[in-house]
Amino acid sequence: MTNASRIPQTHRLILVRHAHSSVDPARPAREWGLADDGRAAARRLASLAVFDHAAGFYAGPEPKMLATLAPVAAEHGQQVQPEPGFAETHSEGWLGGEQFLSTVHRFFETPDQPPAPDWETAAAAAARFAAAVERLRARHAPVVHPGHALPATFAIASGGRMLTAYLSHLLGYSAERALEAWHRLKMPDIAVVELAATAPPRVVILFGTLAV
C-alpha cells in the first residue's frame, strides 16, 4: 500500500507552441488555422512519447492551437479541451514586419504596459495563464501506481508570446532573456515545466530541444 502523505504533489506541464499557421492579414490572427506544413508537423508531434503520460490536453481557443494538439490528443484517445486562459496575448490589428517586432519587444520590456493600443500586457496575460494552470493543477492529481507515483501531467497549447510571458513570470526572466526565448521558438515547439509543492518551478526540457 502506498502512503498518500509521502507522494510528492508535483505537476508537469507540457507547453506546446502552435504549429505554422496559415497567415491571412484580412482576418484576426486569433482566427487563423494551420498551414499544410503546420498540419504535418502537428501529426509528427503525436509520435512523441513525452505526451504518453499526459492526463489532459488543453489549448487556447484559437483554431491553430486546437489543431496543433488535436493529433496528439487523438493518439491518446482524447480530445483537446479549449481553455480561454491559454489564448494568445490579446492584440488588435495587423502589424506587419518591423512594426510587429518592435511591438513584441515593448511587450516584454514593459510587461505592465500595453505595447500597442488594445494589446494585452505581458503581466496580465501571464496572470490569466497562471490562473488557468492552477485550476488544472487542482483537477489533476499525481498518478499513483503500485509502488511508485508520477507527477500529474497535462499538455497546453498556446501562442509564442503567451508561453514566453508565462515562463518569464514563472522563472523571473529578464526582458532580454524573454525576447531571446521568444525569438528562438520554433513552430511547433515543446517545453516541459515542473511545478512542485516544495521546490521552485523548473524547466525540465527546453523549447527547441524536441522540435519536429
Partner: peptide, 16 residues
Amino acid sequence: RLVAEQGHYAGHTYPT
C-alpha cells in the same frame, strides 16, 4: 536525462 524525462518515469521521485 533528456531521454529519460520523456519516458515512463518522467518526473519520478517517489519512492526513488
